[in-house]
Amino acid sequence: MKLLIVDDSSVVRRAIERDLESGEITEVDQAATGEDAVRLYGAKLHDVVTLDITMPGMDGLTCLDKIIEINPEARVLIISALRDKATAIDAIKRGASGFLCKPINPSELKEAFDLLIED
């Protein structure tokens, strides 16, 4: 299983990678910007993407739109500090499969990831 982790913070990217470490994941890519994420996703069509929203350059919701354009079935889990319901609802309407708020709770993250890959 291929995982793409998108966040402008390297500390967050590494924490997500550690939290999701398992035998199921065979390949992990990381991107610090929305632009890099779209490029990487287009090349590899990762099975799961974790995606931040507030990033320099292309924001996460625009990046989500572009990933969904490439693959309408993409499994994208938003992980963002933005804790308002309107943003979460908007992300789900645009095609995200789930929404988690920072700070990241490792067990919630694992649970959300497991639900995503069960689908």
Partner: peptide
Amino acid sequence: LICDLVGEIANTLSGNAREEFGRDFLISV
């Protein structure tokens, strides 16, 4: 890493405040 972390904490605490202030509380990177 320390600079990355201090920025991320500021981002998390600001973004979480949208729970109260709503979507019009726009936060920068």
